[in-house]
Design a protein around this nucleic acid. Sequence first.
DNA 1: GAACTATATGTAAATATCCGAATACACTTA
DNA 2: TAAGTGTATTCGGATATTTACATATAGTTC
Lengths: 117, 117
Amino acid sequence: MNKSPLLQEVTELHAGICNGLADPTRILMLYALVDEPRNVNDLTETLNLPQPTTSRHLKILRQQGLVIGEREGLYIYYRLADKRIIEALDLLRTILNDRLTYRASLVENQNSNQKQE
Amino acid sequence: MNKSPLLQEVTELHAGICNGLADPTRILMLYALVDEPRNVNDLTETLNLPQPTTSRHLKILRQQGLVIGEREGLYIYYRLADKRIIEALDLLRTILNDRLTYRASLVENQNSNQKQE
DNA sequence: GAACTATATGTAAATATCCGAATACACTTA
DNA sequence: TAAGTGTATTCGGATATTTACATATAGTTC
């Protein structure tokens, strides 16, 4: 395995991005930004959070390069830094759904087996 | 925003998967499993970790449904639970690379501007 | 069953994360 | 410059994560 310092560093950034995604609130935030940029208060109300909590999560997303905030007059509008972030999230969600569906089908079979017995 | 309990729960699982990916060691582990299953000692040597550390990370990956371990005789062989996990990781890595490249190009420009001035 | 090998877990210390509440800061408008 | 609105930070405590070291468990082979 290549243990060069470069790989090490890039892998840490890679993990950092994943860490940015590793919170339900932040995932909901990113999906909330799919269609259009939103300001903090908007997100705060949409996600039903205390405003400081919204800001803190946005800071993490910013630090990991997942969102970009730009001030327009009184507001700071946040938007996705890269649309492909949603692709990645969708892919992981698909993997999850397939797993849940598979488990559900196991329960199905289990039930019908029980009925047979 | 739909705040149904179901969405809440699925989003937590979604975040859980991301959390499984949110560690450099675990990312290297997953990439180490791309081509073929490996046992714990194999991974331990490849990643140059203490064996208990390897086991612990594998446990997390297992819990998040990212890898599957199956015993064959004396060894437990771990493999990716779903190849698409690598697709997702690759996509995130691409996003990261593009960002790094972009930043590097900024530095480039900055340098050449300095030379011009 | 004893010895052996592979893998997992307990524990403790260091470190990080999350949240709520209060407060500070930034920008705009009057 | 003062008031007002939007956004960020600080602090505290509770909780979780990571790691190393030691040890336990599980399965195999003799």
